[in-house]
């Protein structure tokens, strides 16, 4: 039969099936929507965190703390040496006094910690900005190690260390999130499979008649496949809508801090939204196929 007529028939019958057993269909749609909502929320969170981490990586610096009493000429020589590697984009000298003022500005509640000392409590430093795109990891690492051996240098703080640790944490969160989403999706597939099997059972007399008049298995099963597909698409669309609503409601309520940026920075891209709906459709279709695979419906 003509493909477009067959699909038209499948869609009409699937919509009739959904409408006739809307309560159990609603259960299937809700299950898949909840699974994809959780998956989507994780995707949103991880996406924004990744963006933030990329930003931090772009802003990462190597801070070279000088030992107390380093002569200005030696500091200037060191500063000139620090500008040589190709990835370095700038070196800023921060005196001990500037460091103390910065501390007071950033941490006013514990400002007294740096008062009352006879001399400056914080060391002077050279803050090296670099372009992460131009960094050659091995050469960069060797360079940092060599700085640690310079006699005038007390300590070298490489921002990449904690950014890398954060990226590791993100990878773990992503892995756990993926596992949770897979488990939830499998549960949703089972729910859809049960719903479709139940619908097929309700229509078993009709299906017998269809088979007797010469309908092929594809023609009989087609509406059930489309029913699963529609349930999945509806579930996915509901999940995206709920995520968007949640994002709209939460965004103005979160204070404008970096955490707010992480949680509500930007919504899922169109590609991610389509991915969620496609996953729903796939889960629905797989559920329908699985439910009808073994039995002669």
């Amino acid at each position: 039969m003509a493909v477009h007529r067959a699909f038209g028939y499948f869609f009409r019958e699937a919509i009739v099936n959904l409408a006739r057993s809307w309560k159990i269909s609603a259960v299937a749609v809700s299950t898949i929507a909840v699974s994809l909502f959780i998956g989507g929320a994780l995707l949103l969170l991880i996406g924004n965190l990744n963006r933030q981490v990329r930003e931090w990586r772009r802003e990462a610096k190597v801070i070279v703390y000088l030992r107390p009493g380093v002569a200005p000429a030696a500091a200037a020589g060191l500063r000139a040496a620090l500008q040589k590697p190709p990835w370095v984009t700038g070196v800023e000298a921060v005196s001990a006094e500037q460091a103390r003022q910065r501390f007071v500005r950033y941490f006013p509640s514990v400002a007294e910690l740096v008062h009352g000392w006879g001399e400056e409590p914080l060391p002077a430093s050279l803050e090296v900005a670099y372009d992460p795109e131009r960094v050659q990891p091995r050469a960069f690492e060797a360079w940092v190690q060599s700085l640690r051996r310079v006699p005038q240098v007390g300590m070298v703080d490489d921002d990449r260390d904690w950014v890398s640790q954060l990226e590791d944490v993100l990878r773990v969160i992503g892995g756990i999130g993926l596992a949770v989403v897979v488990v939830l999706l499998v549960a949703a597939i089972f729910t859809i499979a049960s719903v479709i099997r139940l619908t097929a059972y309700l229509y078993r007399d009709e299906i017998d008649v269809m088979r007797l008049v010469g309908a092929t298995e594809l023609f009989i099963r087609g509406p059930f496949y489309v029913e699963g597909l529609l349930q999945g698409i509806l579930g996915g669309a509901l999940a995206v809508a709920a995520l968007y609503l949640g994002h709209l409601v939460m965004a103005p309520q979160v204070p404008r801090t970096w955490l707010a940026g992480v949680l509500t920075g930007s919504f899922l891209s169109l590609r991610d939204q389509l991915l969620i709906v496609t996953l729903g459709a796939l889960a629905g279709f797989v559920g329908a196929v699985a439910s009808l695979r073994r039995e002669e419906v």
Binding site: M1, A2, A6, V213, F219
Partner: peptide, 8 residues
Amino acid sequence: SYLPRVLG
């Protein structure tokens, strides 16, 4: 008309 429909 079910069978004519099946027949396309």
